[in-house]
């Protein structure tokens, strides 16, 4: 034994701290850089000649008179009506989160309280559904949706996203419900509650932390979706992510890549706030899934 293990090893702490610092730069710097650059003109953000142009904003000053410009944001939000996509995203994510939670708590509760074999099979089928790439399902939606004439509208995309969310929501809420003792709803039913009353009046109130955590992940799934919203929404109903994708094709060729940059930065803001306020719940949710699942 060469060293006393109980003595704190300073070298190792320093190495660990350095490693963490490098990781912080790797994880955070791209966002910082892009946010900073979104207030510049294209010649500065993509400065082939000298990268310090992006810091000093030489071309931005020459073209707009100031070191920072809102041209990119104005072009995206006003000229290209990104605000419409923002509204659509707000609508889709809020409704999808609420509906997913309603269906998920009902189903998750049933799965957690049923001791029968079929509950297990439903969970396994849900796992297989969870594993299927979303785009494979989308290829099955298009023809029927064209035939039924429901393609392109927000309600269609919302219902599809809720359904695609279900496997994950069921698994997560099921494991949260398992952690609530059975005695609680059983004693409520002995006291004369029906099964549904016991669920609503007794179980749901103690489940709020689990519901909020699951809601966060449903929100993320709906917000971050690309495959479904890109293929199922017509142009005027597009949400932010497919809108950004369509910017890439149409705008980059016109030399207005800064519109895409500023809309990308705009779309990260809600996510940033989400992590800021709900960090504890997100971390808790990830680990809860790992420990119980």
């Amino acid at each position: 034994m060469s060293s006393t293990p109980s003595r704190p090893n300073h070298t190792l702490t320093i190495i660990a701290t350095l490693f963490v610092l490098v990781w912080l730069v790797v994880a955070g710097f791209p966002f910082l850089w892009t946010t900073w650059g979104s207030f510049k003109v294209e010649a500065d953000f993509f400065s082939r000649a000298d990268w310090t142009n992006a810091l000093s904003g030489v071309n931005t000053i020459r073209q707009t008179g100031g070191a920072f410009t809102l041209d990119g944001y104005e072009g995206a939000w006003i000229q290209n009506e990104f605000w419409r996509a923002g509204l659509n995203t707000a609508m889709v994510t809020v409704v999808v989160t609420l509906l997913s939670l309603v269906l998920g708590t009902l189903g998750g509760y049933a799965l957690a309280r049923s001791g029968y074999r079929y509950a297990f099979w439903i969970l396994i089928i849900a796992l297989v559904f969870r594993a299927m790439p979303h785009i494979t399902l989308v290829s099955g939606y298009l023809v029927p949706f064209f035939e039924l004439n429901i393609w392109g509208t927000l309600p269609t995309a919302i219902i599809v996203l809720v359904a695609i969310n279900q496997p994950f929501t069921l698994w997560m809420l099921h494991s949260f419900f398992l952690s609530i003792p059975k005695d609680l709803d059983e004693s409520a039913m002995v006291d004369g509650c029906t099964r549904f009353q016991a669920f609503r009046e007794v179980i749901v109130p103690v489940m709020w932390p689990g519901i909020i955590t699951t809601g966060l992940f449903s929100f993320l799934l709906a917000y971050n979706d690309f495959a479904v919203t890109a293929m199922l929404l017509r142009q005027e109903n597009q949400t932010m992510i497919p809108k950004i994708a369509s910017f890439l094709g149409s705008i980059e060729s016109e030399g207005n890549v800064m519109f895409a940059v500023s809309s990308v930065v705009s779309a990260t803001v809600p996510l940033f706030l989400l992590v800021m306020f709900f960090q504890r719940q997100i971390v808790g949710g990830l680990t809860a899934g790992a420990v119980k699942g």
Binding site: F45, V264, F272
Partner: peptide, 22 residues
């Protein structure tokens, strides 16, 4: 932990664009 969560939480398309532009 806050900064570390960012690459995971970010929309995949947005994350790849941010890196692509760099």
């Amino acid at each position: 932990i806050f900064v570390s969560l960012l690459p995971m939480i970010i929309t995949p398309l947005i994350g790849s664009l941010v890196i692509y532009w760099m």
